[in-house]
């Protein structure tokens, strides 16, 4: 979680704000030219509204604190979601606070009660893999009168590792890259069907249907062990000069197989970088390697 402090704030006029400014100028001109004090009073009211509106929006932005939680896995060319927590330290509620990177990557908090916080997910898009900087976000508000937008620039300087883009792989792509795609030849993973591998004691997590009733001895229960026929263990081969689309393909395949419980390794230019393994950690390791493959900062 990164807590960030605002850097500078600035104000932009919205469409109605421009009308308001023009009207104020015209009214000022009319008041000065006519000497009508009621017009002066109106002018004073318009200026007060402008000043107070600015003051309240500034106060709203000053009384909030931003915390940003970056997800563990960030993928290029995909909408990722950063968790944004906005805390209101003030004793009055703040309204319509938005946090954004761009107009499309934006999250709105409608009301944050005093001394509390609200959380939401902000879409965030990374163009390329490798290390990437989340430079800054803007917290802003149009409250109270929608005439102006006041924004504060929150410098983040968060360095995140962006994994290659992952897409749904096609069937024909699956056989392209595995180097030793033996169909479970070197596998020790236990399945429910396949070649018989012997017996073992029944354990609590085993399904009752797997109990080998013929071998019941002195109340000890046994189950049969089989090779998992669908299980694959293989190493994905990639060149260090592989194109971006090839990297994305390998990454997508690695993710696909690992998420289906297979064991996947990675070899770069014929050298085995990561021996085959399964699980989430292996997925992260492979994606990290692929994210930094021929990466230039």
């Amino acid at each position: 979680m990164a807590r960030v402090k605002p850097f500078v704030s600035y104000v932009k006029l919205k469409k109605w704000g421009r009308y308001y400014a023009v009207l104020t100028l015209l009214l000022g001109f009319a008041a000065v030219n006519s000497g009508n004090n009621l017009l002066y009073f109106f002018l004073a009211a318009l200026l007060s509204i402008m000043a107070l509106s600015g003051f309240f929006s500034y106060l709203s932005l000053k009384s909030i604190r931003l915390s940003i939680i970056v997800p563990e896995e960030i993928y290029a060319k995909t909408v990722n979601y950063l968790k944004i927590r906005v805390s209101n330290r003030n004793i009055v509620p703040v309204f319509l606070i938005y946090v954004k990177k761009s107009d499309k990557e934006k999250v709105l908090f409608d009301m944050i009660p005093p001394k509390s916080y609200r959380e939401s997910l902000m879409p965030y898009y990374f163009e390329r893999r490798g290390y990437s900087n989340v430079d800054a976000v803007f917290a802003g508000t149009t409250f109270p009168l929608s005439f102006t937008i006041r924004e504060m620039y929150y410098p983040l300087n968060l360095k995140v590792l962006v994994f290659p883009h992952i897409y749904r792989i096609r069937h024909e792509d699956r056989s392209l890259y595995p180097k030793n795609a033996g169909w479970g030849a070197q596998s020790t993973k236990e399945g429910a069907i396949g070649d018989f591998m012997g017996l073992r004691k029944y354990e609590k997590h085993d399904s009752v249907s797997r109990i080998y009733w013929k071998k019941v001895k002195n109340k000890d229960l046994f189950v049969k062990r089989f090779h998992d026929e669908d299980f694959k263990e293989f190493t994905l081969e990639i060149s260090s000069r592989a194109s971006e689309s090839e990297i994305e393909k390998v990454a997508s395949m690695a993710v696909y197989y690992l998420e289906n419980g297979h064991s996947v390794g990675l070899s770069v230019d014929g050298k085995e970088e990561l021996p085959p393994d399964s699980g989430m950690k292996q997925k992260i390791r492979i994606l990290e390697k692929l994210a930094l493959l021929s990466y230039e900062d």
Binding site: V32, N33, N37, L43, A44, A45, L47, S48, A51
Partner: peptide, 21 residues
């Protein structure tokens, strides 16, 4: 708040002893 601030602005807004109209 606007009303209170308006009083301040009303008093101090620059006036001219000469008006065009």
């Amino acid at each position: 708040g606007t009303i209170i601030m308006s009083i301040f602005f009303f008093v101090f807004l620059p006036r001219s002893p000469y008006v065009l109209l």
